[in-house]
Design a protein around this nucleic acid. Structure first.
Length: 495
RNA sequence: GUCUCCUUCGUCUAGUGGUUAGGACAACGGGUUUUCAUCCCGUCAACGCCAGUUCAAUUCUGGCAGGAGAUGCCA
């Protein structure tokens, strides 16, 4: 039997890390078992739907490099794959259920239901859920209510006796007494759109889905779905409820923990490779020691057995580490194109870079690469080139164990050595030796000489190495900055 | 309240009826280094609790506790 799995998000917000991991697991499982990965858009909530969310879904999956075998845009023999376009199908099946006596019309107002719910919570009633008020309405009563213009919903008759079992690949059998299932959930809303329960069951059946891999938050409603399958006389798919992704505090990962949407991570300069690699590892492992997986590898080696039962905490630090590792694995050219939008956006370079800009970036990328955790870091690392912001704090020039006087002398004499040697075309190694010698002469640590020079030239205590910085900046500009800093320090000394 | 699921270092995890319980991130310390970073080395650190089975339990069974999720005309 060919494996057919689906990712079925609801376009009501940006693609969330948790959702994307579900997509990834489904996708990898499909690939690894030579099956089909189907995308289905569950846009039955017309209130929360947004076009932007749908666009975000497509752009996120394409950025991650996840292609669906069937679904919107690409089509397939079980379409349409957008639920709002399947409106009629759900209506027909819901009515069929009513005809079979397995569902019924309900005319209760949202107000009444709200009051009911409040009452149940207030009295801490053991019995929570709909009171089946409309279960046994006569034809006359129905006609009367409908005459008033009330649009009914269709509710499933949940059996009050017996129990229902969901077979879960991960969890084993999950059994629930039928009377513990929240009574008579709505299948078809008054606007004629189906709820998740109905649409999901019908589509998974009609689309020939073999394995349903979805978040564990669906476990409690699993038996309800099985009841629906039984009501239709269909065979339920194989279930596999995925552990959830949590925040540091153990609660469901959400906004207050930090970024949660792929779009944010993408904008912040995370690589798709890093995100895929890390996100997959929250809740799955191959052997406990292999850490790096490319998408292509996962398409081969992903196994259901490697999925864990317990929820996992999303560790931003570890993602960052992965990202840094992937950045360092890029060639300079690749990294250049990845980093370019950030520099253009900041106004540092033209979208069609000039020759000088290209020269600068060629020199900048190798030393910057070692220091980047995200692509965005390029802005900070290169700002000294594109924005000259001389330090206003003289302390910055003074390294540990030095003072203003010695630092000034180090800067003055260091610049002299540095620039005259550079102009003579001496190699950086020789110059470095001379500067080390100078430090000894001044009874300073080596950094006592290098720090004032670096600060003068890069405007920062934390910077790229001195010789790289000078080369990037150009000799003239570097010398200009050094002289300026000497003047600045002299002023301070005299003050 | 009721129902359901979960439980190995701070975090992601490996693993076994007898192991020095392994790896990675983080943290901390050290080395390389002109700062930062990279790189290298090291340290810290876990089987939730209580019973039972067993010669032996982190591993099997039961109970408890803790955590999470569900309980919507949201998915």
């Amino acid at each position: 039997m060919e494996v057919r799995v689906r990712y079925a998000p609801s376009p009501t917000g940006l693609q969330h890390i948790g959702g994307v991991r579900t997509a990834l697991y489904n996708y990898f499982f499909a690939k690894a078992s030579h099956g089909k990965f189907i995308l289905r858009v569950e846009d039955t909530d017309r209130e929360r739907y947004s076009d932007e969310s749908l666009e975000d879904l497509y752009s996120t999956l394409s950025w991650l490099g996840i292609k669906w075998d069937e679904g919107p845009v690409v089509g397939g023999e079980f379409g349409p794959y957008i639920q709002s376009e399947r409106y009629k199908i759900y209506q027909d099946y819901a009515k069929k259920l009513v005809d079979m006596g397995k569902a019924y019309y309900c005319y209760c107002t949202p107000e009444r239901l709200e009051a009911l719910r409040e009452e149940q919570q207030r009295t801490k009633s053991e019995y929570q859920g709909y009171d089946r008020h409309c279960l046994n309405l006569s034809e006359e009563e129905r006609a009367e209510l409908e005459g008033k213009g009330i649009k009914p919903v269709i509710r499933l008759k949940v059996p009050t006796e017996g129990k229902t079992t969901v077979h879960d690949l991960l969890m084993g059998d999950i059994t629930r007494k039928n009377r513990d299932i929240s009574p008579d959930p709505i299948l078809l809303k008054s606007d004629g759109f189906p709820t998740y329960h109905l649409a999901n069951v019908i589509d998974d059946h009609l689309m020939g889905i073999t394995h349903v891999m979805r978040a564990q938050e669906w476990i409690p409603t699993g038996p309800l779905h099985v009841i629906l399958y039984e009501a239709f006389g269909w065979e339920p798919p194989i279930y596999c409820h995925l552990p959830m992704v949590m925040g540091k505090d153990g609660q469901k990962l959400s906004k207050r923990h930090g970024s949660t949407s792929v779009r944010e991570f993408r904008n912040d300069g995370y690589l798709a490779e890093a995100l895929i690699n890390y996100v997959t590892l929250v809740g799955w492992s191959l052997d406990g020691s292999t850490e790096f997986f490319s998408k292509e590898e996962l398409e081969k080696c992903f196994t259901l057995e490697g999925i864990h039962k317990s929820p996992g905490v999303f560790d931003y630090k570890k993602l960052e580490w992965f990202n840094g590792m992937y950045i360092r694995s890029k060639s300079d050219d690749e990294l250049f194109s990845l980093v370019k939008p950030y520099l253009v956006d900041k106004g540092y370079i033209h979208s069609d870079p000039t020759e000088e800009e290209m020269r600068v970036l060629k020199l900048l990328i190798p030393p910057a690469k070692e220091r980047m955790k995200t692509l965005k870091d390029i802005v900070e690392l290169s700002s000294f080139v594109f924005e000259d912001r001389p330090p206003e704090d003289v302390e910055m020039y003074i390294s540990k164990g030095a003072d203003l006087k010695s630092s000034l002398e180090a800067l003055e004499r260091g610049s002299e050595i540095l620039f005259s040697s550079l102009k003579r075309g001496e190699g950086s190694e020789d110059i470095e030796n001379s500067l080390v010698k100078l430090a000894q002469e001044l009874s300073l640590k080596v950094n006592g000489v290098f720090q004032p020079l670096r600060v003068a030239i890069t405007n920062s205590k934390v910077s790229l190495p001195l010789f790289d910085s000078i080369e990037i900046l150009g000799l003239d500009e570097a010398e200009r900055r050094a002289k300026r800093s000497i003047e600045f320090m002299k002023e301070k000394e005299n003050a």
